[in-house]
């Protein structure tokens, strides 16, 4: 077994704790104060990165690349925490990351970047990413990247991957709160991850220093990707309506709390 060549596609999104306010800027829709918002690695993509690193650690000869599209300066900030978690080589693309870019354009840029990775063995390729992004939630980007790369084995909403040599056993979410388990003889394949099963790895500064040796040059040579909303017109953007109905209750069983919340949501 020669291991896997795992390419993870992972973008950045605003920290979910931030209040996001859509505005219309000179280049189309954007987020208010987007340039100053703290960013995190897209949560679903982050899970796929941790799964990739775990798989690589247990499959000798494997290697992990992280292909990430976002404003270069913000990517650099993001790498200060991501680089400490797992070992990978960065392929950076310099472009917008506000959540208003079209999935097709992003997929094209990612696929081209992956095609340009030297030493990537496409026969050993496992393409990883999030099943959707926290910014746009389009849920189609990974499939588009896979199609462009000619990967026909595609799995969406993956929560678990087991390997036996080259053989892949994949557990993916399907409708109705159920799982489907598939088997795939060998790579290449695309796995768009849901949450996976692994915890967030602790930070390891030594690993971070090691990763930074390749990350900084990668950021320096990041290709600029012009992304716009293209022909897509956004009629309106608005924040979800918030409702707040506070009630102080003591000693209520969790089942009753859950029942009440569900009833409240159905009312809404």
């Amino acid at each position: 077994m020669a291991g896997f060549h795992i390419v993870v596609c992972g973008g950045m999104v605003p920290d979910p704790l931030q209040s996001l306010e859509p505005v219309v800027g000179p280049d189309g829709p954007a987020l208010k104060n987007e340039a100053m918002l703290p960013m995190v690695l897209d949560p679903w993509a982050a899970h796929s990165l941790y799964e990739a690193a775990h798989l690589a650690a247990h499959a000798p000869g494997s290697k992990v690349w992280l292909v990430s599209l976002g404003p270069k300066a913000r990517l650099q900030q993001l790498m200060m925490s991501i680089a400490q978690k797992v070992s990978f080589e960065l392929v950076a693309l310099d472009g917008a990351a506000g959540g208003f870019s079209d999935a097709y354009e992003i997929a094209r840029a990612l696929a081209e970047a992956i095609e340009g990775i030297p030493d990537l063995d496409r026969t050993r390729l496992l393409l990883f990413g999030g099943c959707a992004s926290a910014a746009r939630d389009a849920g189609v980007t990974m499939s588009m990247v896979a199609e462009r790369l000619g990967l026909t084995e595609q799995f969406l909403g993956v929560d678990m991957l087991e390997t036996d040599g080259d053989r892949l056993r994949i557990k993916e979410r399907v409708e109705g709160g159920r799982y489907r388990i598939s088997e795939c003889d060998a790579p290449p394949a695309m796995l768009a991850w849901a949450t996976g099963t692994l915890p967030i790895p602790p930070n390891n500064p030594q690993l971070g220093m090691q990763n930074m040796r390749s990350i900084m040059p990668a950021l320096a040579r990041a290709k600029s990707i012009p992304l716009g909303s293209g022909d897509v017109a956004f009629g309106a953007v608005e924040r979800p309506v918030q409702r707040r109905e506070t009630r102080v209750v003591k000693d209520m069983p969790p089942e009753d709390i859950a029942r009440e919340i569900v009833a409240w949501m159905r009312e809404g």
Partner: peptide, 13 residues
């Protein structure tokens, strides 16, 4: 100083 930037993230976590 990338070592310090990473240290900040580690400490914050």
């Amino acid at each position: 100083r990338y070592d310090l930037q990473m240290l900040v993230q580690s400490s914050r976590t």
